[in-house]
């Protein structure tokens, strides 16, 4: 059954507020809020907002309010999987028509899986009771539709981590691969991790691949080479079937896709003809 919500008091006409456009911020620029938030992880600080147009006169006359300052716009970002919600608020001026940007900041590491965002017009301060008008602080007058934004899912993402190399005793390279697998059949996602040196300018640049495509390209070639290097000592002399999503399977597919070679061939070229490997690697990855 579809539900309609009724307050025990008069509420303004739904058309007196337009919840226009939902947005989020990337690289200092607002972009339309998609169903799946790109490039989000537990280190991201995210700002999500909505632009709201209000007909304050219509609201005042419907609710019998004296001043639009008694109203408040509230943005709720609800993260049910984590049992946590984030609240952003904006006050309203006395203008007859107003456009308000309402936003909320989601701190790093405090959200998971998905957010449900909604915006609300509420009574900010208590008024006089009686006559079927809202008077309790927080009384809801109008609400937007709820929107669901996926933060996490199961789409591929290369395992990686930013860390100051000096703190973990690594030489000051821009990046490296950390590998700990007992066998090439071990899970790739569980045993390989790209470490990005936060102290290195090249790594910092590559962390924003869109803004710094050259750094990103260099990283890509290095990662390709490092992956082959890391498995090369364990490659048997003849091709093998590896378990799904294992180190062996991923690197096998990578060699096939980019070099059109079996892993055995790629590893042997890496060992025996490193310069040719380097050239092929460069052209394949940057195709």
């Amino acid at each position: 059954m579809p539900a309609a919500r009724f307050m025990p008091y008069e509420t303004p006409d739904a058309e007196s507020v337009q919840w226009d456009a939902w947005w989020f911020v990337r690289g200092g620029v607002r972009e339309a809020l998609p169903q799946q938030l790109p490039g989000w992880d537990y280190s991201s600080v995210e700002t999500i907002g909505v632009t709201v147009h209000l007909d304050t006169e219509a609201i005042k006359s419907a609710t019998g309010m004296q001043s639009a300052r008694d109203l408040e716009l509230v943005l709720i970002a609800d993260c049910a999987p984590l049992g946590r919600r984030f609240v952003g608020a904006a006050s309203i001026d006395e203008e007859a028509e107003e456009t308000v940007d309402l936003s909320v900041e989601i701190p790093a590491g405090e959200a998971a899986l998905q957010l449900e965002v909604s915006a609300h017009l509420v009574l900010a301060s208590p008024g006089e009771p009686g006559s079927g008008r809202p008077h309790l602080a927080g009384s809801r007058l109008l609400s937007s539709q709820r929107r669901t934004v996926q933060l996490e899912g199961e789409a591929s993402r290369f395992p990686s981590e930013a860390v100051p190399f000096s703190a973990i005793g690594l030489e000051p390279a821009p990046w490296t691969i950390s590998a700990s697998f007992a066998d090439l059949n071990d899970s790739f996602m569980g045993s390989i991790r790209l470490l990005m040196n936060e102290e290195h300018p090249l790594a910092r640049a590559a962390l924003d691949p869109v803004a710094n495509p050259e750094a990103a390209e260099r990283l890509k070639i290095d990662v390709f080479r490092m992956l082959v290097a890391v498995v090369a000592p364990d490659i048997p002399e003849c091709a093998e079937q590896y378990e799904e999503a294992s180190v062996g399977e991923v690197v096998t597919n990578m060699a096939d896709l980019y070099l059109r070679q079996t892993l055995v061939e790629a590893a042997s070229m890496y060992r025996e003809n490193p310069l040719r490997f380097e050239r092929l690697c460069y052209s394949a990855v940057n195709e």
Binding site: P38, G39, D41, S43, S156, A162, M196, P209
Partner: peptide
């Protein structure tokens, strides 16, 4: 720093 953007850029390696 978040490495999500880097992780997504390199996702093509993962088949």
């Amino acid at each position: 720093s978040s490495t999500a953007a880097v992780g997504d850029m390199l996702a093509g390696f993962l088949g």
